[in-house]
Simulated assay, not measured.
Amino acid sequence: MDAALSNKALADAFEAQRPRLQRLAYRMLGSVAEAQDAVQDAWLRWTKAGEGVADPGAWLVRATTRLCIDRLRAAKAERAAYRGPWLPEPLIEPLTQDPLERAEDVSVAFLLALERLSPLERAVFLLHDVFDEDYAAVAETLERTEPAVRQLASRAREHIRDARPRFSVSQEEASRLAAAFMAAAANGDMAGLSTLLAEDAVLVSDGGGKRKAALRVMVGRADVVRLLEGLAWRGGGLGRVRDAKTMRINGYAGFVVTLEEGPETIAFQPGEDGRIAAIYMVRNPEKLSHVEG
């Protein structure tokens, strides 16, 4: 085969799989940038081994999965030493477009639940339960026996049984809640904020030690309001927003906001009672390199 034609065939086969590989890698790693790096590494391996591979899709899924597992294991100590709560790197889509991802499969709640799994458990669960690979294929990918893979899948499901929320709230209602919260916060209306929050609402802010953020998860309406009230009293918080763009962030209605010190993302998880169940704020600049502020 002519070398140019061979290279084009390899590139075409890879590009056909790239969206699936990117989705898998993001769920494995919780990072847009790291997922892109893992997929790029898979491409480099593909250029050396791809010619003559009978099933390019299966080969590339195996390569990407193994690369992600290696990255997770290497990052274990770094993740354990992370300063303050950890949130996944935000996945941002315009609200005006149809979502590229199923909301429940990229929700922060789901990705945080995946963090509680071992790398192998995470790979098995995602490959089988999310990407519909059969157990035999998963076993080949992970170089494990099929019974061992089934056991890993069962264990993973026990950990994340309730973590994939079914979004019963309409996108319009979720957007209304998010906009009302931002308006009340910007105006220092703590009473208005309180009415928007579920009684057991949580607020998670991720500064990674690089920017100011709460060093623990705020739990309960009163706890969340106290934090926001303290920020407002000190002249910080959402009163300093220079610009705010409505976006879909990990399937939730949210905002990309621009502050004096740079961008941050705020995502709002709606609750069953028509109030906000959780607020996720990513402030760590290392997780926002792909965000236009």
Rank of each mutant, 00 (worst) to 15 (best):
M1G: 15
A9E: 13
F14A: 08
Q17G: 04
R18A: 11
A25L: 05
S31K: 12
E34A: 08
E34D: 13
Q36G: 12
A42T: 15
A42K: 09
L44F: 14
T47Q: 09
T47K: 06
A49M: 02
E51N: 05
G52D: 06
V53L: 02
A58H: 12
W59A: 15
T64I: 11
I69F: 02
L72I: 04
E78S: 09
E89N: 14
P94V: 05
P94H: 11
D98K: 12
P99F: 03
P99H: 11
E101T: 04
E104M: 03
A109K: 15
L114V: 07
P119F: 08
L120M: 07
A123I: 10
V124M: 08
F125C: 00
L127S: 13
H128V: 08
H128D: 05
V130T: 10
D134A: 01
D134H: 08
D134N: 13
Y135R: 05
E140W: 02
E146A: 11
V149D: 11
A156D: 11
H159A: 12
H159P: 01
I160N: 01
D162R: 13
P165W: 06
Q171H: 10
S194F: 02
E199D: 15
D200K: 11
A201E: 07
L203P: 03
G207L: 07
K210H: 13
R211W: 03
K212E: 15
A213D: 06
A214K: 08
V217G: 00
D223W: 01
V224P: 00
L227E: 09
L228C: 03
L228G: 02
E229Q: 13
L231F: 12
G236R: 09
G237E: 00
D243S: 10
D243R: 14
R248M: 04
G251P: 00
G251T: 06
F255P: 04
F255V: 00
E264Q: 14
E264M: 13
E272F: 04
E272T: 10
I276M: 08
I279D: 00
I279S: 06
E286A: 15
L288A: 05
S289Y: 06
V291N: 06
